[in-house]
């Protein structure tokens, strides 16, 4: 684990560096990449700080479905970027598409090692990566918006494949984040009955995701 001294030094050094979403100039990014490739760790740190929040929120968290897994994946992505930045070739669209691809490959490895059913499986992400070889997302913000929309669409498509009442239970309790009691009231059942309804809804969703439903989203 990082020593407090090192963490403090880096926190100070990186303080004030905003996310890339706040309009990073492509030329200054190119210069930062040049420096990073020459071994300038401050420049590389600035790039990681700029991309990390988007990678975590839009790419890793939805696909891995767990904050702990997404944090592990982000750490692994950073390790690979640090190791391979020398191999990166500037193509005029910034570093983000490359870093995102690294993150997706990390996510694929993690999903392959997982036994629990989540919304994405490794083959879903691999197919997504293959499709993007032809149309790579260039702008970080557009790419993030597209990723987040794809995640919401994936949820919506999955809910369409299960019984409407189950979909409604999931919608109200999980997506609208209503309390158990309020969700029960909306679905016109007792809280205890709502527990059963939600259990059945998630079982149906898991069964759907484990089966044919995955690739049709």
């Amino acid at each position: 684990m990082l020593s407090p001294v090192v963490a403090d030094v880096w926190s100070t050094m990186l303080a004030g560096v905003g996310e890339a979403e706040t309009s990073r100039d492509l030329e200054s990014e190119r210069l930062a990449v040049v420096l990073a490739k020459q071994g300038d760790r401050t420049a590389l740190g600035e790039l990681l700080v700029a991309y990390g929040p988007t990678l975590y929120r839009s790419v890793l968290l939805p696909r891995l479905g767990s904050e702990a897994a997404a944090k592990d994946a982000l750490a692994e992505t950073y390790a690979k970027v640090v190791e391979r930045i020398g191999q990166f070739t500037w193509q005029g669209v910034g570093l983000y598409p490359w870093v995102r691809t690294v993150a997706l490959r990390v996510a694929i490895d993690m999903l392959r090692a997982r036994t629990r059913v989540v919304l994405w499986d490794a083959e879903d992400v691999a197919a997504e990566l293959d499709r993007e070889q032809e149309v790579a997302p260039a702008d970080q913000r557009l790419s993030a918006m597209r990723d987040e929309k794809a995640a919401r669409d994936k949820v919506a498509a999955a809910l369409l494949r299960i019984h409407p009442r189950y979909a409604r239970a999931i919608q109200v309790r999980l997506l609208d984040e209503e309390t158990r009691e309020e969700a029960a009231r909306i679905l016109e059942v007792t809280p205890a009955t709502f527990d059963v309804l939600l259990h059945r809804a998630l079982s149906a969703l898991r069964k759907d995701l484990a089966g044919h439903g995955r690739d049709t989203a």
Binding site: R57, L61, R63, S66, A151, V155, L175, E177
Partner: peptide, 11 residues
């Protein structure tokens, strides 16, 4: 799975 659905919908 419930948490994965929530995080995919509202990361």
């Amino acid at each position: 799975l419930a948490r994965a659905v929530v995080l995919a919908h509202s990361p």
